[in-house]
Computed example of a mutant assay.
Amino acid sequence: MKKTLFALTALSVVGAANAASTTLTLYGVIDTGIEYVNRVAASPTTPNVGGSRLGMLGVGGLSASRWGLRGTEDLGGGNQALFVLEDGFVPSTGAILPGALFTRMALVGLKSDLGQVTVGRQTTSLLDGMVNFAPLRFAVTYEPGTWWLGVNYRESNMVKYTGQFGPLQAVAHYSFGTGVPVLSTGNLLANGGAGETPGASRDNTAFGGSLMYLNSTFGIGIGYDQWNPAVVTGQTGKVRKVSVGANYGTGPYKLYAGYRWNEANFSNGNTLIRDNYWWLGGTYQLTPALGLSLAYYYADVKSAAATATAPSTNPPNMQQYTLQADYSLSKRTDLYVTVGYAHNGSLVFDSAVTGFTVNDPTMTGQKNMVGVVTGIRHIF
């Protein structure tokens, strides 16, 4: 159960607080289940070895498991100070995700009627502008969120503005160094992607913006994202994305559709990948407790290369169908079953471009992959 605490917490993250003006909230999600996947390689480097896999989820089903703390302080005159600290974990083992503590979010900022400005590790403007147009709300299993938004959808060293004006949201950000360590598998970034390098101020910087209109029945959004990764100090590449999305809902139905253009170039101008990504989906609330979702994802890959000097290829276009049933036991706990079928690639388009973040590499010579996961999620 979400708890708002007034005063000093057991975690000792704040000092003595003025209960009339300061709030602190502990929140989180625990989501895990059992998954079956066929034709999955043992690892990206051994694609000739593999087969079916049955086991516990390591990354979550509907949501990534995480916990966090957020707080606000009333500064008077309608102004607030705010902060968020959030980290992920693996519920099947209890392990904290690799990297520094609070790898998901670590930000502090100020908020007024004109919007809020936050600094720290945060999500990109593109994610903020598109999240409401994802048929499965960027479900870890099985929606190609990293393929859609890029491996840099969370960035460090960021300054970000968010304005909410009725149904209209405007977001803009700039990162002095994203902290993303790799451009793609096999392409490590200078200084671990941290940026802020003397004499090479453009290395691993990023910026973007989005506009979204959303009301109870209709929504539309557009977003732009640019990342300047440097494999070699002082030599930046360019990764650009433009995405549009929309949804419409009436009664128990809701429809989703969208498009994303992407071009990623190495510093010498050679193309890492150029693709067009499309999605279409819908949800239907069959009963007050049972919701059904169906989604289709398609990636038209124009060209791709493994490194800055490798020849370009034109791989087969990837497709995926996902069917999901979600049954709510309460407002905070639900059970789900998700089935995914991928053609010409891995589930969630897991690939070298996404750094194999879900660990679903396709076996050599296999064109199709099927996955089934059933699990439980609790929100607190």
Rank of each mutant, 00 (worst) to 15 (best):
T236K: 12
V232G: 00
Y259A: 02
T236H: 13
A264K: 04
T271W: 10
G245F: 02
S243H: 00
A264L: 08
G269H: 04
L255H: 01
S267E: 13
Y253N: 15
T233L: 04
T271K: 14
A264D: 11
K254V: 05
K254S: 08
T233K: 01
T250E: 14
N270P: 04
K241M: 06
T233W: 01
Y248C: 07
A257L: 14
K241I: 01
G237E: 07
N262I: 02
K241P: 01
A230Q: 08
R240A: 04
N247D: 12
N268Q: 05
Y253S: 14
L255V: 11
V244S: 13
T236P: 02
L255Y: 07
G249F: 13
V231L: 12
Y256D: 05
T250K: 10
A230N: 10
Y253W: 15
K254N: 10
G258S: 03
G245M: 03
Y253H: 15
V232P: 03
Y253Q: 13
R260G: 11
N265P: 06
Y248K: 04
A246F: 02
T236F: 10
N262M: 10
Y253P: 09
G237L: 04
G249C: 13
V239R: 07
K254T: 11
V231C: 04
R240M: 06
N268D: 14
Q235T: 05
F266L: 05
G237R: 10
S243D: 01
V231T: 13
N268H: 09
Y253C: 11
N270L: 08
K238A: 06
S267W: 13
T250A: 15
Y259G: 02
G237P: 10
F266Y: 15
S243T: 05
G269A: 06
N268T: 10
N262P: 00
Y248G: 06
V242P: 00
G269K: 05
N247W: 03
T250S: 14
G249V: 12
S267F: 15
T271F: 09
